[in-house]
């Protein structure tokens, strides 16, 4: 039996044969639509996003605690390259925009547009990672490493954890692109693109929060 077959079977509801007994006694089944409002895949994705949020809550909580508890923050003569990171932020935001385009394309059954926009998104994601990698190499040259006090530790852990998520998202996107090129998606079968898109948006939104928290002010 295919997965979920049980709920997909059609059933005729009996109506009105039973008089409801107070509270839980009985009565007809309440009319429940057979198709849930949020599909399994989307719901699962939402759950994953919830869990990721808690992971980042933990790390951000630590960051904030250390930050509030210390006098000099970052640490004496150290400045984060805010300018480059602004650019990087726009790169990531733009990738969310192109991802939106990809989702529109698949909803319009535009196969070519889908592949194209997904590819641009992937490139932008890679660009984000490369710029960040470059930035890190500069920082390390300037003497900020993961073992440079709690500042280095929280900075690299928090931002690195986010970068890891972008990396995972890019890999996932590559798989989706590969599938899209082989024509696996259509208006009727697009959940694979949709949940990848959800994750992409999430990673983008997360970045805004982290950027504001860690780089600005």
């Amino acid at each position: 039996m295919p997965r979920g077959a049980a709920v997909q079977q059609r059933i005729d509801y009996p109506t009105g044969q039973e008089t409801p007994v107070p509270s839980f006694g009985g009565g007809p089944p309440p009319p429940s639509s057979l198709r849930p409002p949020v599909s399994n895949a989307r719901l699962g994705m939402l759950m994953l996003i919830g869990a990721e949020t808690m992971l980042f809550t933990g790390l951000t909580g630590a960051y904030v605690m250390f930050r509030l508890g210390s006098v000099a923050w970052p640490s004496a003569h150290l400045y984060l390259p805010v300018g480059v990171t602004w650019i990087n932020t726009f790169v990531l935001l733009f990738s969310c925009y192109t991802m939106r385009g990809a989702l529109k394309a698949v909803r319009a059954d535009n196969q070519q547009g889908l592949v194209k926009r997904l590819s641009i998104t992937g490139l932008l994601g890679t660009a984000f990672l490369s710029i960040q990698g470059y930035e890190w190499s500069q920082l390390i040259r300037d003497g900020l490493t993961i073992s440079t006090g709690v500042y280095g530790a929280t900075f690299y852990t928090l931002i690195g954890c986010h970068a890891l998520h972008v990396f995972a998202a890019v890999i996932w996107l590559l798989v989706v692109i590969w599938l899209a090129r082989r024509g696996k998606f259509s208006v009727h079968n697009r959940v694979g693109v949709e949940i990848c898109g959800m994750y992409w948006y999430y990673v983008g939104a997360l970045w805004i929060v982290l950027f504001t928290l860690v780089y600005l002010n």
Binding site: M47, G50, A51, E52, T53, M54, L55, F56, T57, G58, L59, A62, I146, S147, G149, V150, G152, A153, T157, C161
Partner: peptide, 23 residues
Amino acid sequence: LLALPVLTAALAMLLFDRTMGTS
């Protein structure tokens, strides 16, 4: 779903302290 990621964050920090020289 909501509690374990917090432990994971703490565990990762502990692992870094032990292996990567963070504090």
